[in-house]
Amino acid sequence: MIPVTHVLVFSMILFGIGVTGVLIRRNALIMLMSLELMMNAANINLIVFARQLDLLAGQVFAIFVMCVAASEVAIGLAIIAALFKNKGTVQIDHFNGLKG
């Protein structure tokens, strides 16, 4: 087995890539995908600590995280679909109706 630190650094990088995607991309769908990357990074941490500490709680919580991720995507995509019907685009630059 490889040290837990290496896996943690890896999941940190994955999380960083996800944050980058949310911050710099303009396509709402790709921002949602980046959110999924971040969720996965969190899950990897849960699993590796479950292995390290020999506790099942980590694996159980990973299942809950997946459940929440699925809910988030379903609602997120429904919102994007509604926005697309309204504005005809998924670029978030166009969703500035509340800007003065």
Partner: peptide
Amino acid sequence: VPETVTHI
């Protein structure tokens, strides 16, 4: 890292 895991 524990070599053997019992709970998992």
